[in-house]
Write a protein that binds this DNA or RNA. Structure first.
Lengths: 125, 125
DNA sequence: CGGCATCCCGCTCGATACTG
DNA sequence: CAGTATCGAGCGGGATGCCG
């Protein structure tokens, strides 16, 4: 069943809970999307503009993953032209808290990290 | 030494601070290593046993990255046989807090995530 | 407008083997 | 004991093009 599987396969559960989470937010874009959606609902293209340098491809894929895992809701309005809105679910919103802790930590310490890299580089001569 | 590149290149800084952090902990092993070191200092092989299914290769690489970014300290005791100990730096320890928030969130909500995946799968029929 | 399909490149990571 | 060297498969992710 390799060959052309029916689209993408859904891995239901990782051995370790934290892996479930890291696999979702560890990638390039998920965190940015969640941050963009924090203030409120956005449409697909609005999301693109908000994030800036993401491709349609990756935005689409990542949103689908986030939807799969219950972080966001996708609502299709059958109009012409079609309109699709993305919103954080309660799960998604509940995730904002630990996430913002992480972001805050990153903001507070990235100078230290950069300094460590410089020092390491120097020590390697 | 390959003439190609002098070992591994150090990227000093990402455009966004949170990327610096995610690039470090988003991978397969970094979080596990930090958790393993949380209780205290460990030697290389002890770390391997603690984590379980990591290869020497990846442990070595990941530790080097963590050292580079100032999360852990590497101490070599010039004995025979050689002994190397890894310890969290203050930066590394300070990171445990937001990290544990994240782990706690993952533990609390991974059931919801799995349920969301099941439901999504069903909805796709 | 909001996607999915296809192609393709680069990098990550695993396996294995060798070293001080 | 604590690594590095080398090779190779796999996958993430960019570019492009087509579709409802």
């Amino acid at each position: 069943m390799t060959a052309i599987t029916a689209s993408e396969e859904i891995v239901l559960e990782q051995p370790c809970p934290i892996r479930d989470v890291l696999d979702r937010i560890g990638d390039q874009w998920s965190l940015l999307i969640l941050e963009a959606l924090a203030p409120g609902t956005l449409r697909f293209n609005a999301l693109m503009r908000e994030i800036g340098d993401i491709s349609k491809q990756m935005l689409s894929r990542t949103l689908k993953q986030l939807e799969q895992d219950g972080f966001v809701t996708r609502t299709l309005y059958p109009e012409v032209p079609p309109r699709v809105e993305y919103t954080l679910t309660p799960l998604g919103r509940s995730f904002l808290e630990p996430m913002q802790q992480l972001v805050a930590w990153a903001d507070a310490h990235h100078r230290t990290i950069v300094a460590a890299r410089l020092q390491y580089q120097a020590s390697q001569t």
